[in-house]
Structures are given as C-alpha cells and as structure tokens.
C-alpha cells in the first residue's frame, strides 16, 4: 500500500531511501548470517573430527593393550605351565638314565611320556583359546552352543542358545569376531550381572543377521554402555565396540520395558560377510 501511495516526490524519496537502506541491511544481514553460520558449522565439524580422532586413538590403544594382554597370558602359560613340565621331562631323561636298571629306565620313560602328553594337551588348550576348533570346523552356531554348554555345566546359570536361521556360514574371520563379541558379552554378564539365565537367539532377514542375548541380571543400557566404553576401565567394552565397528555392525543395549530382563542386540549386515 505504501508504494501505491507514493505519488508525490517526497514520498518517493522516502521510499527510495528506506527501500535502499532496507535492502542493503537485508543483504548485509544475510551475508553476515551466512558467514557466522558457516563458521559455526566448520568449528562443529572440526570438533567432531577431533573427537573421532580421539576415539580412534582410544580404540587403537585398547586393541594394542588387548593384544599385549593376550601375549602376556600366552607367555605366562608357556612359562608357568609348559616350562616346568618340559624341565621335569628333562630331569627324567637325564644322562644318568643309562646307568640305571631297566625297570627304572622304563618307569622314567613312562613318566616322561605322561608329562609330554600333558604338555601337548596344555599347548592344545592354549591354541584352542586362541581360536576355538569348534568354531573353525563347525561354525558359529556350534561354537556358541559349545560355550553355552560349558556355562550350563557349572550349574549356577542356565544358558541356552537358539539359532533360527544360520544355514550358510559367514567367513571365518567374521565368525571369529562375532564369537569374540559374544564371548565378551557373556563373560561380562556372568561376572557382573548376577543373572540366573542367559538366552541367546539368532534371527535373519534378507539383509541382516540379528543376534540377541537376554539375561535376568543387572545389565547396561545404551547410554551406560557408551559412557563406560569411553572410560579407561572399559577395556572389554572398547574391544566389543571396535570389533562391532570392524564388522560394520550395530550393537544396542536395552532394558526390557517390563524391567524383568536386559537384552543386547547385534545387527550384522550379511552381504559383506559371506
């Protein structure tokens, strides 16, 4: 209306002045807004990048520490178990053996044989702890069932696993990673949750495999998991996180709405795993 009323020269002058001033103000305002907004976005991106780098650094650290722990455990097993056994064998088979009577010789050889058998068994157990033979030969389903049978055998926790659709095996590397994640989750549950049962189920859609662990103890929610994962103590959770990330999968810690149990769901994309 104001423009239409601007019929005389003075009004037109006002319109031109205010219009020009307004347009310039709008233009400058827009440019300033864009610059400020872009600066904010860039600073946010930089902060995110820094956080990601820190997280990667932590993951790397956790992975190195976990490898180092594993090495130390193997070294301790070799030093404390295999070392003394082999030293004992050496004692049985020393140079004096030939000067002894035949019965003592046979007894010594028999004892040495027994100890060598024990050593072989020990080394086999160590090797199995590095990669479970059931997993290697029969797949994830058998390895998980095996693990749950052992837990059941203890008598204090009822453990069961049910694979609904796992006809085609995934690549061994992936199966091993999934197994390690499940092992860590189950170990954590046994250690910290005071549960009376653990139940694992596996389901499949066209794109994903879902593995779900339920238990009736004290568990974690997603927020607690994310919080604990970023603390220096959360080594196991960091390992879970890094393995899940390598698998390009997702993990979700939830409390059942009925408050009777906790569940952990792992969503694994099938395509890259076959």
């Amino acid at each position: 209306m104001f423009f239409l009323q601007a019929t005389n020269s003075t009004n037109v002058t006002y319109v031109v002045y205010f219009g020009t001033f307004g347009m310039l103000l709008l233009a400058v305002g827009l440019i300033v807004f864009i610059v400020i907004h872009q600066r904010k976005v860039i600073y946010f991106q930089l902060r995110m990048k820094k956080m990601q780098e820190e997280q990667q650094q932590m993951m790397l650290q956790a992975s190195i520490e976990s490898q180092e722990e594993e090495r130390q455990r193997i070294a301790a097993d070799l030093h404390d178990d295999a070392g003394p056994l082999l030293a004992t064998v050496r004692l049985y088979l020393n140079e004096n053996l030939i000067h002894q009577d035949q019965a003592t010789q046979l007894q010594s050889i028999y004892n040495a044989k027994q100890i060598i058998d024990d050593t072989i068994q020990l080394i086999r157990n160590m090797s199995h702890s590095l990669i479970p033979p059931t997993l290697k030969n029969f797949g994830l389903e058998s390895a998980v069932n095996d693990m749950f049978q052992k837990i059941n055998g203890s008598g204090s926790i009822s453990a069961s696993a049910r694979f609904h659709d796992y006809k085609r095996r995934l690549k061994l590397d992936y199966e091993l990673s999934i197994f390690r994640v499940l092992q860590e989750l189950v170990n954590n549950t046994i250690k910290h949750s005071h549960c009376s049962f653990i139940h694992l189920t596996q389901n499949k859609t066209d794109q994903y495999i879902y593995i779900r662990i339920h238990h009736d103890g004290e568990g974690l929610t997603q927020t607690e998991y994310e919080k604990l994962r970023d603390t220096p103590q959360g080594m196991g959770l960091k390992n879970i996180f890094s393995r899940v990330k390598i698998l390009n999968s997702k993990i979700l810690f939830e409390k059942d709405p009925s408050n009777t149990y906790y569940k952990v769901t792992i969503e694994i994309p099938i395509e890259a795993m076959l």
Partner: peptide
C-alpha cells in the same frame, strides 16, 4: 572445511549482491 570468506568467489558474489540489492529501489523508482 574452509571459511567462505577465504574464497575470491564469495567476494565477487558479495559485490554483485550488495550492488543489486542497493540499486533495486533506485532503479525501480
């Protein structure tokens, strides 16, 4: 991740933008 005002194009466009916005009313009237 680089600032928009580090680009020469930004200043070309800013010049044109301010000029066009500023002269809009005086050209009309």
């Amino acid at each position: 991740a680089f600032f928009i005002y580090d680009l020469p194009e930004f200043w070309y466009v800013t010049g044109v933008f301010l000029h066009s916005a500023g002269t809009f009313f005086i050209y009309i009237f």
